[in-house]
């Protein structure tokens, strides 16, 4: 049982978007840059993608969960820890160890990854609006947890390297938790998220073990 209603959650997100409007406006653009780098790999690209994703996870953990969500949900500090841990993992495995790599020629994993990433960046907000959600409450990749988790999964699909699966654990857990919340509170956006994330998770597993050329 959650201590808030869907209406209160939407109001909290709207207040957050208004308070941090610059971050909300810039984050999807910056993460769009990460998608570009994953699709058209450049030397040093993995490191930059790792840094950008880690920054997004750290922001969501430290600002969204700890400062905003914690006001209405006593579990938020636990979620914040999860997000900060994922930020640390992304930094370590992608920016420092480069245990994840992006290929020059990705084939169908690349196309699938791009599709999921575009959904996380623009598809989900459009669906939320089509479902009647107010524009102020739209959840955006880089500042809101759901689309950030989905975008991370999408980029991991486009990558190779042993660490991809390890980096997918927390995003999958988050999407499952968000889906359960969506089911109980009747938030269609979150119910949809868990379905898309499950498909992304399946695609990630299906694309592991393929030989690739990394940069």
């Amino acid at each position: 049982m959650f201590p808030y209603t869907a209406e209160v959650l939407a109001a909290a997100v709207a207040g957050y978007n208004a308070d941090y409007w610059l971050a909300a406006a810039l984050a999807p653009l910056v993460l769009g840059g990460a998608l570009w780098l994953a699709a058209y790999p450049k030397p040093g690209g993995t490191r930059l993608i790792g840094l950008l994703l880690a920054a997004a996870w750290a922001w969501v953990g430290g600002v969204f969960h700890l400062q905003v969500f914690s006001v209405i949900n006593f579990m938020a500090p636990v979620y914040a820890l999860m997000f900060l841990a994922q930020a640390g993992l992304l930094l370590w495995l992608m920016a420092v160890r480069r245990a994840v790599v992006f290929e020059r020629t990705g084939g169908w994993p690349r196309r699938i990854g791009v599709a999921f990433a575009l959904f996380a960046l623009v598809g989900q907000p459009i669906v939320a609006l089509l479902l009647g959600g107010p524009i102020g409450s739209v959840r955006l990749a880089g500042v809101a947890p759901g689309p950030t988790a989905l975008l991370t999964l999408a980029l991991l699909i486009m990558s190779s390297g042993r660490a991809s699966l390890a980096l997918a654990v927390i995003p999958m857990l988050w999407c499952a938790a968000a889906g359960a919340t969506g089911l109980l509170l009747g938030v269609a956006e979150d119910q949809g998220l868990v379905v898309v994330a499950a498909a992304a998770g399946a695609a990630l597993i299906a694309t592991r073990g393929r030989p690739r050329t990394g940069v």
């Binding site: 808030y4 209603t5 209406e7 209160v8 109001a11 909290a12 006001v71 209405i72």
Partner: peptide, 13 residues
């Protein structure tokens, strides 16, 4: 007040 008064900062609520 469980759930009902947990409305955060939202002025309308």
């Amino acid at each position: 007040t469980w759930i009902t008064f947990n409305v955060g900062d939202d002025a309308a609520l």
